[in-house]
Amino acid sequence: MKAAPEAQRRLLDLQAIDTSLAQLAHRKRTLPELAEIDAVARELSALEDERVRAQVAVDDLDRDISRYEKDIEQVRVRKDRDQQRLEAGGALREIEGLQHELATLNRRQSELEDAELELMEQREAAEQTLNAVLQRLAEAGARRAAAEQRRDEAYAEIAKEQEFKSSARGPLAADLPPDLLSLYDKIREDSGLGAALVRSGRCGGCRIELYGADLARVKAAPADEVVRCEECRRIMVRTPESGL
């Protein structure tokens, strides 16, 4: 393939832009915020499981406490009824029976209240556990929001740089011979680098020094000949600093 030396040298400018665009794309894919957001998302998922378990524990205790409250209230109602009957008087046997039942109800009420108190203490501990999980959820959510904001700011900055580089690439690429540009793009798509400067007798693509028949071939090639490296197959752009 033939191409004017100046056109070949412009490939280096195009490659510099493409390298910058590739670096920007890589930076976008590997932002530290992305890994942080993923890690926090996993943490939030685990914390949400903890929250559900803690909430279930509190709800179960609330249900049990409510049941005890109803039982205690029923005992109180029976006590009030028996006390009224006792105060109304009656046969000795009936009075003795009421007194015995009142004593039994008092013991039952005491047992129920003790059990309820124990449950209320358990509920207080369960609620503290739930509140701690909710606090950790809130903190993790705030960290995720902050990381997402930093990610979005980085995305915006990268997009701005990409737009600037792409706007510079368009006219430069349009000014190159179509066949040369096509060859360059194909090589770049395969290896990430389509053209490289030969400096001091060394290929700028694979960094291998030219010698022997390969060096003679490159030296003998006309200035308008598009020369490719035998090792990496990239276009070797020759300039006065190539040392040929």
Rank of each mutant, 00 (worst) to 15 (best):
Gly194Gln: 01
Glu101His: 14
Gln128Thr: 13
Lys70Val: 15
Leu183Glu: 07
Val40His: 01
Ala25Cys: 07
Pro240Val: 02
Thr104Ala: 15
Ala115Asp: 12
Leu92Met: 06
Glu225His: 07
Ser200Met: 04
Arg53His: 00
Arg217Tyr: 10
Asp13Ser: 12
Ala221Pro: 05
Thr19Phe: 05
Asp62Asn: 13
Leu119Glu: 05
Ala145Ser: 13
Lys160Val: 12
Ala7His: 05
Asp64Met: 13
Asp59Phe: 02
Leu61Met: 04
Val198Leu: 10
Asp214Ile: 10
Ala132Val: 06
Gly194Trp: 05
Arg228Ile: 11
Glu225Ala: 14
Leu197Tyr: 00
Pro222Asp: 12
Leu24Pro: 04
Glu87Thr: 11
Glu96Arg: 14
Glu127Phe: 07
Leu130His: 08
Arg151Ala: 08
Glu225Tyr: 05
Leu47His: 04
Arg233Trp: 10
Pro5Asp: 00
Leu130Tyr: 10
Met120Arg: 15
Asp18Gln: 14
Leu12Gln: 05
Gln109Thr: 10
Leu215Thr: 02
Asn106Phe: 11
Gln15Ile: 01
Gly141Tyr: 00
Cys229Val: 08
Leu14Phe: 00
Ala39Ser: 14
Leu112Arg: 09
Glu124Asp: 11
Leu172Phe: 03
Tyr68Gly: 07
Ser200Cys: 00
Ile72Trp: 08
Glu241Asn: 09
Val237Asn: 01
Ala195Lys: 04
Asp179Trp: 10
Glu121Phe: 10
Gln162Tyr: 00
Glu87Asp: 15
Ser200Ala: 01
Leu47Gln: 02
Gly97Ser: 12
Met236Ala: 04
Ser45Gly: 15
Val237Leu: 08
Leu193Ser: 07
Leu137Phe: 11
Ser166Gly: 13
Leu98Ala: 09
Ala138Trp: 02
